[in-house]
Amino acid sequence: MLTNLVKSNRGSTLIEFAIIAPVLVLMLLGGLEIGHTIYVRSALVGSLQKAARDISLESASSSTQMNAINATVATAVHQIMPSAKVELVAKSYHDYSNAASPAEEYNDADHDGRCDHGEAFVDSNRNGSWDQDGSVSGRGSARDVVLLVATASYSRLGLTSLLAGSPQTVLTAKTLIRNQPNDQQAEPPTGTCP
């Protein structure tokens, strides 16, 4: 009778399924999480691109219009993930080269890599001092280049939040756009470093 028990295959399928099932469930949940994240990111990027086009218009200079544009980005994400926290930050630069290298330009006469000893600099943000980031908060004015950064953060779905890693998903999207040339762009003043 012991030899019959050793040769029996009954129940082996159940044991094999018990070994494979957790792997299959994790793969299924992981696939759903990845698909959902891609979907939320797509909504975030699409709404950010529309927001950038809207911000570049002259009519977007009012705070009421800016709040409406921020709300449209949040609404697009909330339609998919209602609990998401959505933030939209706008910073404006004089031109694309300032957006690529945000430190205010200066003449490094003594070649020490610092703006000091009365060296001249371009005061892009018009605050009277040299800055590592010469941007101005908000959409700026005519012909300025606006960097929009949208961030959406939300708790991961279901059981995937129990897996290793952060329980939060944070998605970030960025875009650059130049404001309409509805007026002449003022040249930034120059200053001297202390």
Rank of each mutant, 00 (worst) to 15 (best):
W130A: 07
N98Q: 14
Y96K: 15
L159R: 02
E58P: 01
T175K: 01
G11N: 09
W130H: 13
R10D: 08
S47Y: 04
R41V: 01
C115L: 08
N125G: 05
V73S: 05
D123G: 03
D131Y: 00
T192C: 03
D110S: 14
I177L: 15
R114Y: 14
D131R: 13
P194L: 07
L44E: 04
G118P: 07
D110E: 11
D112F: 00
N127Q: 08
V73M: 06
Q79D: 13
R178P: 01
A164E: 06
S8V: 03
S12F: 15
G165D: 12
Y93I: 10
S129K: 14
H94N: 13
R143G: 00
K7Q: 11
L48F: 09
D131H: 09
I38L: 15
E58C: 01
S124W: 09
G191K: 03
I19G: 02
A68W: 00
A103R: 11
T190Y: 00
R143H: 01
R139V: 09
Y106W: 15
P189S: 07
S129F: 12
V86A: 05
S62M: 04
V89S: 07
A173S: 13
S61T: 14
A74K: 10
Q65E: 14
S141C: 06
L162H: 09
K50I: 11
N67E: 15
V122G: 02
Q49S: 10
S92P: 07
V73L: 06
R178F: 01
L176W: 04
S129C: 00
R126L: 07
V170I: 15
L147T: 08
S124G: 11
Q132Y: 09
I20K: 00
I34F: 15
T37C: 08
A18N: 06
Q49K: 08
S8I: 01
S62D: 05
L163H: 00
T151S: 09
T37G: 11
Q79C: 00
S8P: 05
P188H: 04
M1E: 14
L48G: 02
T72S: 14
L32M: 15
N127K: 12
D123H: 03
E104H: 09
A74H: 01
R156V: 10
S166D: 15
V23N: 01
L148C: 05
A60H: 02
S155A: 13
E33G: 10
N70W: 02
V89D: 02
S129G: 12
T37M: 13
G140D: 05
N127G: 06
H36V: 03
G128E: 06
E187T: 15
I38S: 15
Q180M: 08
L44T: 04
G30A: 13
V149N: 08
M66Q: 15
T175C: 06
R156M: 12
D95S: 10
M27W: 03
T175I: 07
I69W: 01
L29E: 03
D133Q: 05
E16L: 11
N125L: 07
G140N: 04
E105N: 14
R178C: 01
N9P: 05
I19F: 10
N179M: 03
R156G: 06
G35V: 07
V145S: 09
G191V: 03
G138Q: 03
Y154V: 04
